[in-house]
Simulated scan of single mutants.
Amino acid sequence: MNVVVITVLTLAILGTIAALVLYFVAQKFKVFEDPRIDQVEEVLPAANCGGCGFPGCRAFAEAMVKSDDISELNCPVGGADTMNAAAGILGKEIAASDPMIAVVKCNGTCDNRPKTNFYDGATSCAVAASLYAGDTGCSYGCLGCGDCVEACTFDAIEMDEKTGLPVIKDNCVACGACVDACPKNIIELRKRGPKDRRVFVSCVNKDKGGVAKKACSAACIGCKKCMKECPFDAITVENNIAYIDFNKCKLCRKCVAVCPTNAIHEVNFPPKKVKPAAEKPSAPKAETAKAEAKTSENITSSDDKNKEE
Rank of each mutant, 00 (worst) to 15 (best):
F29A: 05
T82S: 11
D81W: 02
A46C: 06
A47W: 00
I17M: 13
E62S: 14
N48M: 03
Q39R: 09
G53S: 10
Q27K: 12
A96P: 00
A19G: 08
F24M: 10
V25F: 00
A86L: 05
N48I: 05
V21C: 11
G15I: 11
R36D: 14
C75I: 14
R36Q: 14
V21G: 01
A12R: 05
G79V: 14
L73I: 07
F32D: 15
G15R: 12
P76R: 12
D69C: 09
A12W: 03
L44A: 05
C49I: 00
V21M: 11
V21T: 15
S97P: 01
K92F: 12
A96S: 06
G15D: 06
K66M: 14
V43I: 06
E93G: 05
N84G: 00
A86S: 05
F60L: 15
K30A: 05
N84A: 07
F60D: 09
R58F: 10
C49P: 07
A86Y: 09
K66T: 07
A102Y: 10
M100K: 11
A47H: 00
A95F: 09
G88E: 14
D38V: 15
V21D: 03
Y23P: 03
A19P: 01
I70Q: 00
G91V: 12
P99D: 07
I13R: 03
C57M: 08
C75T: 09
G51I: 12
L22E: 02
E62V: 03
C75N: 03
L22V: 12
G56C: 15
M100T: 13
A46Q: 13
L44W: 08
N74T: 11
A87S: 12
E33P: 01
A95V: 09
N48A: 05
A80M: 07
M83K: 11
G51P: 04
G78I: 08
I70R: 00
A87M: 08
K30N: 08
G50M: 01
G15A: 14
T16Q: 04
A61D: 02
E33K: 08
M100A: 13
I94W: 09
G53V: 15
M83H: 10
E42R: 12
G88N: 13
C49Y: 01
D69F: 06
A85R: 00
E72V: 14
G51R: 00
G53Q: 01
F32I: 15
